[in-house]
């Protein structure tokens, strides 16, 4: 895995300043996150809302600058890119797919215009016939054809179709990595699988890598190779998806797994769950960020931040496992 590394993130950190002018507080939205994505791999970043996964995606896409840390894409540190030429290359290589397809596309524009514009702006095709050819080819890759969507407005398509159009748009620049931030959470459960299967298909047919950001562990299990579970800016457990989700080690991953509504009327939740009432408090507290809600909390958890511990093919950030070593 070391040789075919596509993306490697090292100690990436983002600190936001919150509060008024006099009472400033540092909010560490992403705290020393490190991981790699290999070629032809689907990597899931999972976590609840407010865990810093979208902040991470925005840093990766270059929309906000990290406070410190490096993002190496094909060996080039993208946080240090200065020239427009290199930047164009990077935006071609890494393409985003956003959460709500009805917000991605303007309701007043026809959806196909986005596809032509992308092809023109990146200089993929110079002449009109070539543009149609490229667009048709990419739409075919996502199971649509140009005549299905030509001249259509967003409201005329279903959420699943529209999301597939936005994947087709992303494919036009021939990227190697797709950053999909909650791509299916706004889509009906009945159409969700059509988009999820598409990512799997793109990986196998075109060798694409996908960073799949989600809170839906069931689809994450279904498509991804490796998973990183995020909690309040930290990756608390990282490893192969089968290992992490079948036998979770970190107490937070265990709770996440139990909370997935399994589509089986025979299994129901027994015990009540602890929820955090105030997001900000958890971000700024010392020690392990999960210590307020953790069922196995110890004294050390409230004082010291746990280290990454290698155990059973994965890294876990929890004091429970540091003692057993």
């Amino acid at each position: 895995m070391n040789n075919d590394r596509l993306l490697s993130v090292k100690e990436l950190t983002k600190i936001f300043r919150v509060g008024s002018l006099l009472f400033k507080k540092d909010l560490i939205a992403v705290n020393k996150v490190s991981f790699d994505i290999a070629n032809q791999e689907i990597f899931t970043l999972a976590g609840e809302s407010g865990s810093g996964k979208s902040t991470f995606a925005r840093m990766l896409l270059g929309l906000i600058k990290p406070t410190y840390g490096n993002i190496l894409y094909k060996g080039i540190d993208i946080t240090k890119i200065k020239s427009a030429k290199e930047w164009l290359w990077f935006t071609k290589e890494v393409q985003p797919i956003f959460q709500d397809p009805f917000e991605t596309f303007s309701p007043l524009n026809r959806v196909d215009t986005y596809l032509y514009d992308t092809a023109f702006n990146y200089g993929i095709a110079k002449r009109k016939e070539d543009v149609y050819k490229v667009v048709e080819e990419k739409l075919n890759a996502v199971g649509l054809s140009l005549k299905d969507i030509q001249g259509r407005y967003p409201h005329e398509l279903s959420g699943g179709q529209l999301q597939r159009v936005s994947v087709a748009r992303a494919l036009i620049t021939e990227p190697s990595l797709l950053v999909a931030d909650e791509p299916v959470s706004m889509i009906d459960a009945s159409l969700r699988m059509s988009v999820v299967n598409l990512f799997k298909d793109l990986k196998e047919r075109f060798g694409l890598s996908v960073l799949y950001i989600t809170h839906d562990l069931a689809t994450a299990y279904y498509i991804s190779d490796r998973i990183g579970v995020m909690l309040r800016g930290n990756i608390v457990e990282l490893g192969p998806v089968e290992k992490v989700l079948n036998e979770p080690l970190h107490p937070y991953t265990q709770i996440l797994k139990q909370s997935i509504p399994d589509p089986d009327p025979e299994s129901r939740w027994e015990e009540d769950i602890q929820l955090s009432a105030f997001d900000i408090k958890e971000f700024t507290m010392a020690g392990c960020k999960f210590s307020n809600r953790c069922p196995f909390v110890m004294d050390i958890c409230r004082e010291k931040e746990p280290h990454n511990i290698l155990k059973d093919e994965r890294t876990v950030k929890c004091h429970l496992y540091s003692q057993s070593l």
């Binding site: 398509l157 279903s158 699943g160 179709q161 459960a189 009945s190 159409l191 969700r192 699988m193 059509s194 999820v196 299967n197 562990l217 069931a218 689809t219 299990y221 279904y222 989700l245 079948n246 797994k257 997935i260 399994d262 589509p263």
Partner: peptide, 21 residues
């Protein structure tokens, strides 16, 4: 269709959406 398209943890078998719109 609705029930069979649901993914579950521990099950990687191929799931499909409902065809059509």
């Amino acid at each position: 269709y609705l029930i069979n398209s649901l993914p579950r943890i521990g099950d990687k078998s191929y799931k499909t959406s409902i065809p059509g719109t």
